[in-house]
Computed example of a mutant assay.
Amino acid sequence: MEFILNVNPDTQAIAYVDQVMENYTDVYNLPFKRELRFVVHELVINAVAAVEKIGPYCKKAIQVHVSHSNKEIKITVTDEAKGIAENDWDKVLQFDLNELDYSDRGRGLFFVKNMVDHIWFENISDTKFLVGVSKKIRV
């Protein structure tokens, strides 16, 4: 099974993708339902925040691509923002409790990394960035 969503970078899109993922994980009775929904939620929040940094009237889309087989689920979220510099990829996957400032940002990719089997980043172009994750399905 596979689907692609193209959504606007706003809070309504976050809620919409959350609902789609809840329905999808229920219909296909996927294991790790809560974790998968959390992962996609965090990735979409990050994409929305990245596009919002471009400007409040930016109408660039975010694409969510989900596919699964009997062995694995793969999820990618692509935005049309600058993305994360390649030399910062390892850094964004770390979280230091000593630097905790209790803000609501900065921990999502750390949690995502610990909920999936593989996470990767790809700078598709100067203005297009992809975050991908995969998780083995062990039923």
Rank of each mutant, 00 (worst) to 15 (best):
M1C: 11
E2S: 10
E2N: 05
F3P: 03
F3N: 12
I4D: 02
I4T: 10
I4G: 00
L5H: 09
N6V: 11
V7S: 08
N8E: 13
N8M: 12
P9Y: 01
A13D: 07
A15P: 00
A15T: 10
D18Y: 10
D18E: 13
D18W: 06
M21K: 01
E22Y: 05
N23W: 05
N23Q: 08
N23G: 05
Y24E: 00
N29P: 02
L30G: 01
P31I: 01
K33E: 12
R34S: 15
E35A: 14
L36T: 08
L36M: 14
R37F: 09
F38A: 15
V40M: 05
E42P: 12
I45H: 01
V48D: 04
A49P: 01
A50Y: 04
A50D: 03
V51H: 06
E52C: 07
K53E: 03
K53N: 03
K53F: 00
C58G: 01
A61L: 12
I62L: 12
H65Y: 11
E72H: 05
I73D: 03
K74R: 13
K74H: 12
T76D: 13
T76Y: 05
V77F: 06
T78A: 01
T78Q: 04
T78Y: 00
D79G: 08
D79S: 08
E80N: 13
E80F: 10
K82L: 14
G83Q: 04
G83P: 03
A85H: 09
W89I: 07
D90W: 02
D90H: 08
D90C: 06
K91I: 09
K91G: 03
V92G: 13
Q94D: 09
F95C: 02
F95S: 01
N98A: 15
E99R: 06
L100P: 00
D104A: 15
R105S: 15
G106A: 09
R107F: 15
G108P: 04
G108E: 10
L109G: 11
F111Q: 08
V112C: 02
V112P: 01
K113Q: 13
K113I: 03
N114E: 11
D117A: 07
D117P: 08
I119Q: 02
I119M: 14
W120H: 13
W120F: 15
W120M: 06
F121T: 02
E122M: 09
I124D: 14
D126C: 01
D126E: 14
T127W: 01
K128M: 15
K128Y: 11
F129Y: 07
F129I: 00
L130K: 15
L130C: 15
G132V: 02
G132M: 03
G132N: 06
V133A: 02
V133S: 00
S134F: 07
K135E: 03
K135S: 00
I137W: 06
I137K: 03
R138K: 13
V139D: 08
